[in-house]
Nucleic acid binder design. Structure first.
Length: 560
DNA sequence: GCCGTTTTCGGCCCGACTGTTTTCAGTCG
């Protein structure tokens, strides 16, 4: 039972209770717990088995702790199972329809007694919905449309997929009439690995004109709403964009509010309440006096805190650390002096080693590691490969190619290449490429054995997940981190946009163990060398500093 | 259902937009 699965149970519980009309604060408590569980670095299942006191976790009290134990021990939650019997499963899906919430769903169900999405679709066609109290023709149409789109529910975009749209929209909006300041906010600004929608904040002397300009963006497929200061559109790739325009003196507080995360903003709101202050998108208020609103930094300053970078705003301890003024100075793209994981056309890559080396120098790298993937029967190829690297190194003056290799970690924890072969490389990556479904303990032992191999330098994309497609392997990270630290081995942050592995939460945790990192593109082409920026994003979200990342060094450091 | 260095009871974020109304409830972020 993974944390994600447990979190999902509490989310479903909250949704059904909402439809039932249960106390909204209780519902919020379940949702808070669900969010908390999703951001835990370690598995709840293990914590339960080790007899840990779950109520020590924020937003987990006695009742929810009991429920977690029940879920871990029996695989399900009786309270949810009972609730599911009260309502047809279709109701949960309906919550995904934009503009349709629990109250409406309750009314629909109690009056029309449908059981499936199809039945509701039919009722909409017969215009039965608009006869209900509180419903009208517009809402009926919205429901009919929403039902057709239901399949797309829950889709988030990879950061890298949303990026070109964000950039294009940003450029377009810069030309909006009377616009003064403009910023993409939300999870995009926080550099999350996936974004659900784009949030954009602007200041202008005439907000209505800017909103009008916004809705005329050429790639708009639907205008969901457009008011005096706020508008929502859907783009042709079905990415939703929420846009907010305020007066320039309110830009800082609006930007802060719409950057989120929700948990971070709510925590600050609680802090404000404790001080008898009020915070909203227009500023921080003491009675009617606005204490901070022009710049984002003013808000943090008003609370006596350091400025908190957007990537840290997840309510994962950053507010407390900011009060102590001991926030990390986050790594930046410019700090990266080398890319230590690149494939050439000796294996998975498109380009020759020479092409890669020339391009790497052009984009300012001091050194790179070429790290092709070789199996056990490729000794001839390996000879050629090493010779080619040596030939090129004798040519270059202020640039060096490190001899690297990537090899598979077999089921018993051994590496595909033997010690003699491995000893000829300066950097050796281990990857798990098979037997993904081993039990957690066995999988962890497999990886630890590889970490103990004296020739191995680093673990690449440790969980082997593919974002939104494959959860990856299960590991006991406490043991893994201990092994990495005691064997002085490196952990990679793989920058492929659908990997970003190891993730932010675990990177932050690994840093506590004193583990050092590499941020690598694992590029298969010259263009993919630029993926490294996504890895840096993830590292920033994991609180990493320049000093945590070895390829920020000016010269290659022998790892072993 | 969670939380608490004023509290173990009584709070729990708040403003914009829409569609339904005729002053507001529901939804969203």
């Amino acid at each position: 039972m993974t944390n994600k699965e447990i979190a999902k149970i509490f989310e479903e519980l909250a949704k059904l209770l909402e439809i039932k009309g249960e106390n909204p604060f209780k519902i919020r408590a379940y949702l808070n717990a669900s969010r908390e569980i999703n951001s835990l670095p370690y598995s709840l299942e293990s914590m339960v088995q080790e007899g840990k006191d779950l109520t020590k976790l924020p937003n987990i009290g006695e009742q929810i702790a009991k429920k977690i134990q029940e879920i871990v021990n029996t695989g399900k939650l009786e309270k949810l199972e009972k609730l599911k019997k009260e309502f047809p499963p279709a109701l949960l899906n309906l919550l995904a329809i934009e503009g349709l919430g629990a109250k409406h769903i309750k009314t629909l169900y109690e009056n029309l007694h449908f059981n499936t999405v199809e039945e509701l679709q039919e009722l909409a066609k017969e215009h039965k919905i608009q006869t209900l109290k509180g419903f009208g023709p517009k809402l009926e149409e919205k429901i009919a449309k929403g039902l057709k789109l239901l399949k797309q529910e829950g889709i988030r975009f990879l950061y890298a997929q949303a990026e070109p749209y964000a950039n294009e929209l940003y450029k377009y909006l810069q030309n909006a009439p009377t616009i003064i300041r403009l910023e993409i906010a939300g999870s995009f600004r926080r550099k999350k690995e996936t974004v659900g929608d784009l949030d954009i904040v602007a200041s202008a002397s005439n907000p209505q004109k800017v909103i009008e300009f916004f809705t005329k963006f050429p790639k708009v497929s639907q205008i969901v709403s457009a008011g005096d200061t706020r508008s929502t559109i859907v783009l042709d790739n079905s990415l939703q964009v929420d846009f907010r325009v305020v007066k320039d003196e309110h830009f800082g507080s609006a930007l802060h509010y719409f950057t989120g995360s929700k948990a971070h903003v709510l925590e600050i709101r609680r802090m404000a309440q404790d001080l008898n202050l009020k915070i909203n998108e227009y500023g921080l208020f003491s009675n009617d006096k606005n204490l901070a609103s022009k710049e984002e930094a003013d808000i943090y300053r008003a609370f006596g805190m350091e400025y908190i970078e957007p990537e840290l705003r997840e309510n994962r301890g950053e507010l407390e650390v900011a009060k102590n003024r001991t926030l990390p100075k986050l790594i930046e793209l410019n700090d990266i002096k080398a890319d230590m994981h690149i494939y050439s056309n000796f294996s998975l890559g498109k380009n020759s080693i020479e092409e890669i080396a020339n391009y790497a120098q052009k984009i300012g790298y001091r050194y790179i590691a070429i790290t092709d993937h070789f199996g056990s029967i490729e000794s001839n190829k390996i000879e050629q490969y090493l010779k080619e690297i040596e030939r090129l190194n004798s040519k270059y003056k202020d640039f060096k190619i490190i001899k690297g290799v990537e090899c598979d970690i077999l089921e018993d924890g051994s590496l595909t290449l033997n010690s003699d072969t491995l000893s000829r490389f300066d950097i050796v990556y281990g990857v798990i490429n098979s037997n993904f479904k081993l039990p957690k303990d066995i999988q962890s032992a497999r990886l630890i054995k590889a970490i103990q191999n004296p020739y191995l330098s680093a673990i690449s994309h440790i969980s082997n997940r593919v974002i939104q497609q494959d959860e990856g392997i299960e590991l006991n990270y406490k043991e893994i981190f201990n092994a990495l630290k005691s064997n002085n081995k490196l952990l990679e942050i793989n920058s492929q946009p659908n990997r970003l592995d190891i993730n932010d939460i675990l990177a932050k945790e690994a840093k506590k163990y004193g583990i050092k990192f590499l941020i690598n593109s694992s590029a298969k082409s010259l263009e993919e060398l630029h993926y490294i920026k996504y890895g840096v994003n993830q590292a920033r979200r994991g609180w990493l500093e320049k000093g945590d990342v070895l390829n920020c060094l000016m010269e290659f450091k022998q790892i072993l």
